[in-house]
Design a protein around this nucleic acid. Structure first.
Lengths: 191, 191
DNA sequence: AAATTCATGTAATAAGTTACATGATTCC
DNA sequence: GGAATCATGTAACTTATTACATGAATTT
């Protein structure tokens, strides 16, 4: 499982609780690998049982005890082995492409409404991406600049992908608006 | 679940068996919504119980009986309701982006090896996409040209997305080759 | 006064994958 | 002779989501 290795990666920077991990994931890798709280806790439990992590439970008066997880040597070996192992191409599951596949059965106006809503959503997403660096630049100030480069790269990927979606949706919307049902010629993409 | 609605969409063209559905899915929507055989059979069973499909079992001498599924009125209502309902932006789960996120801990050469393997894979995928239309054009010859347009659109999306990945990976590879760790400026993407 | 933060967890459900099982027929 | 096609299914497992539960302290 990949969440496990993401957790190892984070804990290799510094020990953390599940709660803190959740926050880290949300502001970093969640746009290509989201994780909900319950899954993180379950994963940490399993990883500790597997000897990849050790736990230190620190009692608090008013709150539940903090369970601080630390990566073990075994975990570190696992992590670095994984880190240089080629991983499969990711999966893209896009429900609205199923809709589009069957859109021949819909009126143009209804299709256009759907597509415009999608375009709008992705444009918003693009704006959200551009606000990420402002928010995080402060947080990362003191970290290794080479680390920072790779962190930013993944955000840059998100931007590139979203731009591709926006451009593609615009193209399709214009084609349908002009009732131009010329079959897209798959090979003829410029560049 | 979306597989259910994809099944409704296919059965709205014509009644089919699970086996035939599997083949249809493989040559059409599998690149953005794959489905394994066991899942299709399970889904068909559930959908029939829900009254979205009806079954006709046709015995055969040597083989298991063909179970031909037909969409019901209830299923058709469900399908067309779903078809015009806005769906969420898809999810992209890409393991190698987790690797890249933590790549600060790896040597440049190892990162480059990973990235070149990925680039190669996506370029192959691109070539595979360009061979799709040749294969399917015959199969689709007699179908509604408006349907055909939307079918090809989803393949075109696959191409566009893969090109975006290829270009992005090339960019990153070149940057690392030149040891240019300038932080990507997220807002500055040309068009 | 209400919402957010901190901090843990469980239970139920859904969705998807892997692997197994059967077995004749037809194509290479 | 071996692989692919046709055609069904089950069982175990993994991964992820949703929803519930608790409860003080702090911020808005």
């Amino acid at each position: 499982m990949s969440l496990e290795h993401a957790v190892l990666g984070f804990l290799n920077y510094e020990p953390m609780t599940g709660y803190e991990l959740k926050k880290m994931i949300d502001i970093s890798i969640s746009h290509f690998w989201p994780a909900v709280q319950s899954q993180i806790y379950k994963t940490l439990f399993r990883m500790e049982a597997d000897g990849w992590l050790s736990v230190e439970t620190i009692s608090q008066e008013t709150r539940p005890p903090r369970k601080v997880y630390t990566i073990t040597d075994k975990g570190r070996v696992e992590f670095f082995g994984w880190l240089e192992t080629p991983q499969p191409q990711g999966e893209t599951r896009i429900v609205w492409l199923i809709q589009l596949f069957f859109a021949g059965q819909m009126e143009d106006e209804k299709i256009l409404t759907l597509l415009r809503t999608l375009l709008d959503g992705y444009q918003q997403r693009l704006r959200a991406f551009n606000e990420i660096p402002e928010e995080n630049r402060e947080t990362m100030k003191e970290d290794d600049p080479r680390d920072q480069f790779f962190w930013m790269l993944t955000a840059d990927f998100g931007v590139a992908q979203t731009i591709a979606y926006v451009e593609w949706l615009s193209k399709v919307i214009h084609a349908i608006e002009k009732h131009d049902y010329t079959l897209p010629t798959l090979g003829s993409h410029s560049k």
